[in-house]
Computed example of a mutant assay.
Amino acid sequence: MNILSFKNLLFGTSLCLSCVAFGQEETQKINISQSDMINELSLTKTKLQKSHNIGDRYVIQLFSGPNGDASNKIKDYEALYEYPARIKYEAPNYKVWIGNFRNRLEADRALLVIKETYPSAFIPKPERK
């Protein structure tokens, strides 16, 4: 009886191994093709992110006032923090904006750190584009 079960075990093992080998052979034949439009889309998104033209992003506003004061404020800020900063003109004032945060949670976390140095900083409501 042991010999019979050993033969069955040997047969079952060889059958499983052949199935695995056959399955691996089939997976090597898979061909994935990608459209050229995906690369274009990726480049366009990267360009929009760098130019801050993607809507519904959150920023932190440090300052609003004349251009000279805004320039001084951004220089002081860049010496202390790593978040990207920019000056945006909205008539009649220049505004110093920090970051380009995807969601309110990220902006709130950064605001807690920045408020230690700039207590009047706040998060304005994002514009819809």
Score class of each variant (00 low, 15 high):
Ile123Lys: 06
Ile87Asp: 03
Val59Arg: 00
Ala110Thr: 00
Tyr81Ala: 06
Gln24Ile: 01
Gly23Thr: 08
Cys16Tyr: 05
Gly23Pro: 00
Arg86Gln: 10
Ser14Phe: 07
Pro92Met: 00
Asn53Lys: 15
Glu106Gly: 09
Lys47Tyr: 03
Tyr77Arg: 05
Leu111Gln: 07
Ala107Glu: 00
Ile38Lys: 05
Asp76Ser: 11
Ala70Ser: 11
Ala121Asp: 03
Ile74Arg: 05
Glu26Ala: 10
Asn2Cys: 08
Thr27Gly: 02
Leu111Cys: 08
Ser33Lys: 14
Ile38Ala: 08
Lys47Ser: 13
Asn53Thr: 13
Val59Phe: 03
Arg104Tyr: 09
Lys88Trp: 02
Lys75Cys: 04
Asp108Arg: 13
Glu90Val: 08
Glu40Cys: 07
Ser64Phe: 02
Lys95Tyr: 00
Arg109Lys: 15
Ala110Trp: 00
Glu127Arg: 09
Asp36Tyr: 09
Asn103His: 05
Arg128Asp: 08
Lys29His: 15
Ser120Trp: 04
Val96Arg: 00
Tyr81Gln: 05
Tyr94Val: 01
Leu112Ala: 15
Lys75His: 06
Thr44Ala: 13
Glu106Ile: 02
Ile98Pro: 01
Leu17Met: 10
Thr117Glu: 12
Met37Asn: 11
Arg128Ala: 13
Cys16Val: 07
Ile60Glu: 00
Lys95Gly: 00
Asn8Met: 09
Gln49Cys: 14
Ile87Cys: 02
Ala70Pro: 04
Leu15Ile: 10
Ile30Trp: 11
Glu25Asn: 12
Pro119Ala: 14
Asp108Gly: 09
Asn72Trp: 07
Arg86Ser: 09
Leu41Pro: 03
Phe122Cys: 13
Ser35Phe: 01
Asn103Val: 02
Thr117Cys: 07
Asn93Ser: 10
Pro66Trp: 04
